[in-house]
Structure formats: C-alpha cells, structure tokens
Amino acid sequence: MRLAFAASDRPEAQEARERLIARYGCHPAAEADVVVALGGDGFMLEVLHAHLRSTCSIYGMNRGSVGFLMNDYAEEGLLERIATSEKAITHPLSMEAVDATGAVHQAVAINEVSLLRQTHQTAKLRVSIDNKVRMEELVCDGVMVATPAGSTAYNLSAHGPIIPIAAQVLALTPISAFRPRRWRGALLSHTARVMIEVLEPEKRPVSAVADNYEVRRVRRVEIAETRHIDLVMLFDAGRSLEERVLAEQFQS
C-alpha cells in the first residue's frame, strides 16, 4: 500500500508527519493509494479539495481541534487500520456565482454553499428549485445548501437537519430567517438545481461562499450536486462516517 502524508501547519501535525514517514515511508500524492491527512476537519477539507479529481482515498487522523471527519491518532498498526477501514463516498456541490460586474465565478464545495449578508442590512433572496420559484422573498441573514457530509457542520449550527451519508438529499437551510419567520428550510433531491437571486443587491449586498472560497456582491448563485466527482474518505472499522452521523442525532 503506497501512502502519502499531508499535515496542517500545526506543530503536532508536522511532528506526527515526520514520525510516520520515518516508519512507513512516503510516496508522492499522485502515486499514492491513500493520502493520510494529519490535522483537523478544516485541513481534511483542504486535502479533499486538493484531490477532487484524484483516484486516491483520504484517511484522516486527528492532529487538530475539531475531528469529526478524522480517525483517532495512533502510529501503531496504520496499514492494518487502513486495510480494514470503511469507505464513505460523498459528492461535492458546484457553485456558479454571478457578481455585480457580471463576472462568473465557479467553485466546488464539499460541505456547503452559503449566501451571507455583507452589511447590517438583512438579505432579500428569491429561491428557485429546478427553474420554479419556490419562495418569492426570503428575508434573512443568509441561506445555505449543504451536502450530507456537511450537514453536521455549519448546517447543524444553523438548526438544519442532519442527513445520513447514504441519503440522496441536500439540505436547504435558512440562517436567521426573519420573513417568513417560521420557515425552517427544506430537504431537496440530490438532483435538484438551486438558484438563489439577490433582491435589492445594491442596498443589501450578499456574498457567496463555497467552503472557503468567497465571492462578494453576488447577484445570482446556482448550486447543484456534482455526481461525477467521487470523494472517498476512510474510517476505522466500527466508526464509519454513517455511524458518526447517526450518533450525532442522539447527542443530548
């Protein structure tokens, strides 16, 4: 098994990488079967983005703060752990955003695409699903479309639903909805194409964020799942991502 090791800039991650390379060797990422990511969830997203079009799998070990997407760190028996690990295959979102100048920006999101107000003024948004307007005016701090993998991240903090990894749905979740005040969002088919238009963009500017890629003063954003990209994460036997997502729903 050919391993590559990637580490965040945290000292404990860098030190772990050196120890693991000394023990297991290291191949270039382009030649590796598995990339071992050492850090937290944010670094795992960085590694996944770096290998969007790669055939290698990603096995994370926690050397950061938040480690929902990471396995426990241990140097012993790494090859055996990887060999018996369970796969989680996810598909990212594509974002196409048109800004105030008419420029088109494209990006990919593994967790979510978010639209966020840029000033003290609430955002006013029109939401369409598959070319049909479903909400003429949503007044809010923002709104997001989240994948199952991202449903336990920002989406959950915004009181969105937790989605099982195998479920073929996306979460459309408002952020501090003011009108309609009681709207809590929707679950959409994974084939849905979401278009969000910004109303009163000069008075109420809005930014669009695909994971960590931001576009300011957007006018229109289109979001869809990218089924032809498979992202493969590996989790220790008995601690699959599906199990973690399920357990998260029973947290008190």
Rank of each mutant, 00 (worst) to 15 (best):
G185D: 02
V98C: 11
V139M: 13
T173Q: 10
L156K: 04
S94K: 09
I162E: 01
I110G: 00
A192E: 00
V127R: 05
V133P: 05
G160V: 07
V145K: 00
L93S: 05
S176L: 12
Q106H: 15
C140L: 08
S94C: 07
P174N: 10
T84M: 01
W183T: 03
M135F: 03
A153D: 03
L138H: 10
L115D: 06
I163K: 06
N131M: 09
I129H: 08
P164V: 04
N131F: 04
L188E: 05
L199Q: 13
T84Q: 14
T90F: 14
E112M: 11
F178S: 02
S85Y: 05
T84V: 10
A186Y: 01
L199V: 06
S128V: 07
L79W: 01
T84F: 10
E112Q: 14
E80F: 00
N155W: 05
E197H: 03
T119V: 12
R184F: 00
R81C: 09
P92C: 09
E112H: 11
P174F: 06
A158Q: 09
E136P: 00
E76G: 10
L199R: 05
D141L: 01
G102Y: 11
T147H: 02
K124A: 12
V98T: 14
Q106S: 13
S176C: 15
A149E: 01
S128T: 12
G142S: 10
G150Y: 03
R184Q: 14
A88R: 00
S189M: 01
A74F: 02
R193D: 01
P180T: 05
H105V: 07
D99L: 06
S128G: 09
E137D: 00
I89S: 10
E202L: 13
R181T: 03
L115S: 07
T101K: 12
H159C: 13
L78M: 10
L188I: 14
L125M: 02
L138Q: 02
R117M: 06
P161T: 09
A88N: 09
M144H: 11
Q121V: 06
A146I: 05
A166L: 03
A88K: 05
A186V: 02
L199P: 04
P148F: 03
R182L: 13
L156H: 12
P174E: 08
L125H: 01
T173M: 01
A186W: 00
S151G: 11
A177E: 02
H120K: 13
E197I: 04
V133T: 15
N111L: 07
V98F: 01
A88T: 14
E76V: 14
R179T: 13
E96A: 03
A146W: 02
E80Y: 02
P201I: 08
T101F: 08
T173A: 08
P180H: 10
V198W: 00
R126M: 11
S114R: 04
T84S: 15
E112N: 14
A74T: 15
A153T: 11
L116T: 13
I196T: 06
T152G: 03
V98L: 09
A100R: 14
T191N: 11
A158E: 02
R117N: 05
D130H: 09
V194F: 06
G142C: 08
R204S: 13
E80A: 15
G160L: 07
V139P: 00
A146F: 01
A192R: 09
T122V: 15
S189P: 05
